[in-house]
Design a protein around this nucleic acid. Sequence first.
DNA 1: AACATAAGGATCGTTGAACAATTCGACAAG
DNA 2: CTTGTCGAATTGTTCAACGATCCTTATGTT
Lengths: 237, 237
Amino acid sequence: MDDSLLSVDDAADSPLADLEHDRSRLGRSSTAERVADILRDRVTEGFFEPGQRLSEEAIADALGVSRNTLREAFRLLGHEGLLDHRLNRGVFVRILSAEDVADLYRVRRVIEGAAVRRRPSGQELAVIREAVADAERAAADDDWRGVGTANIRFHQALVTLNQSPRLDEAMRQLLAELRLVFHVMKNPRAFHEPFVTRNRKLLELLEADRPDEAAAFLDAYLDDAEQLLVRAYEPNR
Amino acid sequence: MDDSLLSVDDAADSPLADLEHDRSRLGRSSTAERVADILRDRVTEGFFEPGQRLSEEAIADALGVSRNTLREAFRLLGHEGLLDHRLNRGVFVRILSAEDVADLYRVRRVIEGAAVRRRPSGQELAVIREAVADAERAAADDDWRGVGTANIRFHQALVTLNQSPRLDEAMRQLLAELRLVFHVMKNPRAFHEPFVTRNRKLLELLEADRPDEAAAFLDAYLDDAEQLLVRAYEPNR
DNA sequence: AACATAAGGATCGTTGAACAATTCGACAAG
DNA sequence: CTTGTCGAATTGTTCAACGATCCTTATGTT
């Protein structure tokens, strides 16, 4: 209907087929969205700390956009759970309570649990395998930050087994929220190392087509991760 | 750190502790949020039809708010999946594809499926029972619109078994999206009637504490609902 | 007649300024 | 030590303006 490339698309698998993948990038973004991208990075990377207030004037000034545009970006991130918008008081980097962390892991158990009960395709398994291998490589290099990002890719790949774009998106946001908490871990190695081998084990259970065992294994996995996180988190409230 | 009520909080459970619950009500809403509420109602009730363009100027004028404020409201609803924001073209009431409907039901199977596998408390069961009874009453009165809303309450009550605020919120949004599609059902009775007795049956399985049967029953339930919806939906694309 | 191109109008995207509403801290009074 | 009051700072909202983009229609070319 508005598919301007349709005529070339059905002309068999031409070399142009690859271009299809880049089409998502093609949809240019508004200034507000680009501003939101910048702020999202800053928040998840820890540049802005939880609880910190984000001044409209200061940031609008620093980024060279108007207050109105910045406010639109704030709304976007507020809906993603990264910012906390308090009426007449401004926006703050979200502070997650221990209860929030527990809830995030409840959601993970539901979404990831459903995922590992499905029969993965060969291609899906390949992506998961790649993430596991990346984590192992990073661990061998003592690159614990790299282990963390590979780990996140691993879990995101798990969720794709659900074959649901909405669940993929939900997981994306969930992990962004979790990253708000990860920064409290002063010792990333202690947090990430135990899970490298468990990723591998979970992958093997999937490859062996034993969904029930995989689900049980994942539950224990998430229980431990949650506890590790909450214990490092509770003290400083 | 910034908890101004801390001094009274740890002073034992004073009568003031009850006030804490009302704190959520205290956060009044901004104009943008109230505008979003209005538009959300209009969209889900079908006043604005899918595909219809919502003119910034016209609506801002009609509601007596500025374009900037309206745009903030649009952002909110866009993130909820009710509006489709196309750069430089405006916002449109979202048109869900058959693939979207399939995805929504995939998510329902995951979230509601996890819910019915849990052991409900007496209080949770009471809420579910109430929704079932409401649907039956409305059906007896030939009030098929009423059956629809009671049905929605039923499924929302199911999801609360997960004890997860985030899953509750996800379900809320999911059902709002689904309501965009429900309007294509010209015969609400044919769509809602079959599920009244199935709601009752599912409730009984929960009361009898047979989670696996409940889950299986729900899967079939959702399969049928999805098919009914897609069949009425596919033709007019 | 089919197609490409150009012009025009409508609408969105963004800005900057302005003012009202609200919060918060400081300071004075009880 | 609590309560009331004031004022600075910040947010909430409006408004007008202008450039950018899209859609339609008209125009011209092959």
